[in-house]
Design a protein around this nucleic acid. Structure first.
Lengths: 322, 322
DNA sequence: TCCCTTATAGTCAAACGGATTATAATTGGA
DNA sequence: TCCAATTATAATCCGTTTGACTATAAGGGA
């Protein structure tokens, strides 16, 4: 089981011991009342995290442990996002390497017994330009667009100017292009690169005039959240993961509102219902909901059998492409 | 930049130092003459790999270094696959934790200057049941199906029998279900779980009668390859990554054969051409190829501009769904 | 009772996608 | 030289999907 025939210098390295610290870090999502929320600690600027330690049976169980300890929230669905090497830290005596393994976790917010040090925040506080449920957010055209154009024009090379403008146009859907909700990470990288957002505790110039208003996070946590949003927006279209965020029984409109919250855009109601029903993702409970007004709606529950049938094959949700 | 407010015991752990070894491991792919190949070292049963060390600027550059050193092959496109904790190793003095970060890399096989200790193998040697380009492989119905049914029936619980049969049927497309080429990992996990394949150096019973004939790999390397194949088969459908595997100029049929090699199934020629052309993924070089027979074909090259245009937006390849 | 809100059903047309057929341009051999 | 085989390229067909829209049903509140 030891793979030692993979090169001489590998053994050398194994002996000298290039050991690193491993951090586990969680982007925990719940949707409450039509708002997609992220679980934070500290000043609502930090994701739950902790080092991978000897007592952990596995990476995932280590992550569960840290999140539960720091927030009081047990995790359901977990999926790995990305592993990256942090900038070098200075250890006690020698240079210290560290890597972080980030995860996306879905949960229900109920019984918010969570410890007082933690809290749920709408993820759109950190990414105001990502919520298109009420049309294009004003900040996009009023603030982001001019500043990104400014940023593009601030370089001398004409080719690079064009490239920057095109990147911005594609990511944000400027110039009659369509908004693509899955490009959350690219958009964050653009605004970050353009210096339009800054993170908590960064050494950056804090006095810079009128950045794009948005809530910062510690270190690269906001980047992890952007990665997770993008992954989730993509995944809900082909896997029945939304139901991890729903209560036991729900109306079709509640389900639609949840998908809309995640996607950050509205969905055509009849089409949504058609797709849900023809895929037999849900079944009626027989009851109806006493509602906030209007005709009572049938209550449905997730058909757990589909996890055997299609966990593998693929689901569809009608998040319009524009 | 230090995130220390994330819990008291985190600091404790940081002090006591739960340090782990990190291995970088590469699944390197090239397509030669219609065969999808994996780069191996050792007895064609080991993927290039090496520890992440202090001198590496980043995870990716560490990976590039190891692969180049062990095989002589420079890497082009690289994408992270998955990070997992290995089973505990016994270190020199104390228990030793190790994690592996696996990558998918695409390259062209040319100038196979590679060191003598490495070689390219068709990945279908390791997964004979994955190649459906000449129809359903006999091994699937003749060997795998009966043995998987056997395996399913070998448990007492009726519900578990049904679940096993259903898993097998879905993954392999038994009982009139369609073959889904993206389920490579699930299929490997099934045959592994059913004890139908064994890996090199595993402590398993080697004398077990007539396993499914396939080439084994060291440790969990074959599992990594299965993960990479699945990722690649999925990715070619929405990102123009195939071109990383193509020479400078190529005919449309060569392009199609490459996609077919990866997908393990045939594609309808007119539809393939239509999709490639209407997406403007390629442009004519003006030349034509002197061919192996038949009317000469136009030569095309990849329109690198699409990397700016659609790297983000999504490409389509007509790999039929069945 | 009227009106507002929401649920639910049904329709329509355009786009997409898979399959098939037809025609053109070569090479190699009878 | 002509024919057969092979490949390239163009065009068509048709069923399904999907986005947008309309109509009707069923409740609550003023």
């Amino acid at each position: 089981m030891d793979d030692q025939e993979t090169g001489a210098s590998k053994d050398r390295a194994a002996v000298t011991g290039d050991e690193v610290k491993v951090d586990l870090i969680a982007f925990v999502v719940a949707v409450n009342d039509g708002e997609p929320c992220v679980l934070t600690i500290g000043q609502a600027d930090t994701l739950p995290s902790g080092p991978f330690a000897l007592e952990h049976r596995s990476l995932q169980s280590g992550l569960r442990g840290w999140v539960e300890q720091q927030t009081g929230h047990p995790l359901g669905y977990i999926e790995q996002l990305y592993t990256f090497a942090d900038r070098d830290r200075v250890g006690a005596e020698r240079r210290q390497r560290a890597i972080s393994i980030s995860y996306l976790a879905l949960t229900r917010m109920e019984k918010a017994s969570g410890s007082p040090k933690c809290g749920w925040r709408s993820w759109y506080e950190y990414f105001p330009w990502e919520d298109h449920r009420s049309g294009t957010p004003p900040v996009l055209l009023d603030v982001l667009r001019p500043r990104l154009i400014e940023w593009a024009n601030s370089v001398d090379d004409a080719a690079m100017r064009r490239e920057r403008r095109q990147r911005a146009a594609m990511a944000f859907g400027f110039d009659d292009r369509h908004w693509n909700e899955e490009l959350t990470l690219q958009r964050y990288e653009l605004v970050y690169e353009a210096g339009l957002v800054q993170e908590a505790g960064s050494g950056r110039d804090t006095t810079r005039a009128s950045l794009v208003p948005s809530k910062p996070m510690v270190a690269d946590h906001r980047r992890i959240v952007a990665t997770g949003i993008a992954r989730l927006r993509s995944k809900i279209k082909y896997r029945p993961v939304v139901f991890e965020l729903m209560p036991q029984s729900f109306t079709l409109l509640q389900l639609q509102r949840t998908v809309e919250a995640l996607a950050g855009r509205l969905i055509n109601k009849p089409n949504f219902r058609r797709l849900i029903e023809q895929q037999e993702l849900v079944e009626e409970t027989g009851e109806t909901s006493v509602d906030t007004g209007g005709r009572p709606a049938r209550l449905y529950r997730f058909r757990h059998a589909v996890l055997d049938e299609t966990a593998i094959v693929g689901t569809k949700l009608p998040v319009a492409r524009g």
